[in-house]
Design a protein around this nucleic acid. Structure first.
Length: 469
RNA sequence: GUCCCCUUCGUCUAGCCCGGCCCAGGACACCGCCCUUUCACGGCGGCGACACCGGUUCAAAUCCGGUAGGGGACGCCA
């Protein structure tokens, strides 16, 4: 185990979204690569908005993506005493002070400052005040430095410097006694001996404040790496407006976890011209050096392409088990209904499905013989020709033994040359009889997957229906 | 408004640190052709970008300055 200690610290106020998932992935990847420790910490200091369902949803999302953690999950809500202790320490040392300003007052001042074109920062009204007696409600503010600058070397963005005068005295403890985010992260990251903080871009502005807190408390300052955010197609922060943002929603849309992970790792990071990364390659090749500095737009199209790739190259048995819930959604239960082996079905559909949803839709005909036929497809042939083709095939299927796709293909070719038909003249009518439509896997695949008896039954059925037209 | 960050094809990006190999490479999408028993897969080809303006230099996507545009932060949220 190396000394590298990383953490992913989501707040449980919703599901795991793709942005968070990518941050988690980057942390996880680096931990694996450097043989470090990956810690999961739930930032639930906001008791109002944190929920248990969100915690479960986040854990579920991480597990689905295969991001396991070495320590945790830790909950900040379990550390309130520790934070309290440090608040008091800072108070005693004069590095923090009580502020008696009311929310309304503060809001008024902020609005005024904004309207006058000034920076809406706290004016330090209570900075010099001695502690007030009685039970006047108060918050505790960190006494920030007024002069100089605070800077750090971001591993992704390079050196970033903030003038100290830009930062106001932030609240570290609310009037109800609970600590706030910026204070807790610093304490926890220090307590957990985090050596590198990889997090979203939106935290850049918090970093100098946190650094000041580390220093005030005498803690070593970790290294930072801020990952640019993920945008929607209109280049604004990705949100539900742009479509699904929840990791689990992607599972439900039929995406494979390896596809999402592969997509996410390439969003903002690259390794030359490589596009496809196995888990191992990702771990081996990932590095912060090649993480870009600019935000990136989420592209469903590319995700779809990757998913298609993983479906195409995936193990049929595994895909079959993943497909079952999607079949169930379509009212198909392979145990009860007529069903060819699912892996066989999957094999015929792997090259033509981008998602498990598409695959499930395309698989329906295997379980249910068509009740209606695609009229447009059918109308391309004369009724007489259709009946001829069906009769011809029924004859052969009843007498020949055909166990392989090669044998079926051969039969079709023989029929063509014997009757003087072109391949499409035989293939299409047959496809319609077997699947109901014009879009389906190869005829030979359908017949061998369906089995001769079922194929025969469907062709006879089609012949009956067509002759009744 | 103030501060911080960002800017290569429509999108993800390579190249930028260490100027010439870049009249900029790959991928997704799109278009065309080929393959073909449908739909797909696949193969081949095409379209398409260094935000802008100056400077340095024999030479700039690469270095410097400025402008414009975009994003983020500015909360008793995280």
């Amino acid at each position: 185990m190396s000394n590298l200690r990383l953490r992913f610290a989501p707040s449980p106020t919703g599901y795991l979204h793709v942005g968070g998932a990518r941050t988690a992935l980057f942390n996880w990847l680096l931990a694996k690569k450097e043989n470090g420790t990956f810690i999961l910490r739930i930032e639930d200091t906001d008791l109002e908005r944190s929920t248990e369902e969100s915690v479960d949803a986040i854990l579920e999302g991480m597990k689905w993506l295969g991001l396991d953690w070495d320590e945790g999950p830790y909950f900040q809500s379990a550390n309130f005493e520790l934070y309290r202790k440090y608040v008091n320490q800072l108070l005693d040392e004069g590095k923090a002070y009580r502020c008696y300003c009311t929310t309304e007052e503060l809001e008024r001042k902020r609005a005024l400052a904004m309207s006058e074109g000034r920076k809406p920062k706290y004016d330090g009204a209570c900075r010099g005040l001695p502690p007030q007696g009685g039970d006047l409600p108060y918050v505790v503010r960190f006494r920030g430095e007024e002069e100089g600058a605070t800077s750090f070397d971001d591993l992704i963005k390079g050196k970033i410097t903030f003038p100290n005068e830009e930062m106001d005295d932030l609240i570290i403890c609310r009037s109800d006694g609970t600590p706030t985010y910026n204070f807790c992260v610093a304490i926890d990251d220090a307590a957990m001996k985090i050596t590198l903080v990889i997090r979203g871009d939106d935290h850049v502005n918090n970093t100098p404040r946190q650094i000041q807190i580390y220093k005030a408390l005498g803690f070593p300052v970790p290294a930072f790496a801020h990952v640019p955010m993920i945008l929607g197609s209109d280049k604004t922060r990705l949100s539900k407006r742009h479509g699904a943002t929840s990791v689990m929603a992607y599972r439900d849309m039929g995406f494979l976890p390896e596809a999402l992970a592969n997509y996410l790792v390439r969003l903002g990071w690259s390794h030359g011209d490589d596009e496809i990364f196995s888990r191992e390659e990702m771990i081996r090749k990932f590095d912060l050096k090649n993480v870009g500095r600019s935000p990136s737009v989420f592209s469903m199209e590319k995700l779809l392409w990757l998913n298609a790739h993983y479906i195409k190259t995936g193990d049929a048995e595994r895909l079959a088990s993943l497909l079952i819930p999607f079949l169930a959604e379509r009212g198909i239960s392979p145990d009860k209904d007529f069903s060819p082996p699912i892996p066989d079905i999957v094999r015929t559909l792997q090259e033509r499905s981008r998602t498990l949803v598409e695959m499930a839709d395309a698989a329906i005909f295997y379980f249910k013989a068509p009740e209606i036929y695609d009229e447009e497809a059918l109308s391309k042939f004369e009724k007489k020709h259709l009946l001829n083709v069906y009769s011809e095939l029924i004859g052969h299927l009843e007498s020949d033994s055909l166990f392989t796709t090669v044998a079926v293909d051969l039969l079709l070719k023989e029929i063509c040359s014997a009757k003087g038909w072109k391949m499409p003249q035989v293939g299409q009518p047959l496809r319609i009889a077997l699947s109901g439509g014009a879009h389906a896997p190869a005829i030979a695949d359908i017949i061998t997957t369906l089995g001769i008896p079922e194929s025969l039954r469907r062709i006879k059925l089609a012949k009956e229906k067509v002759s009744g037209l």
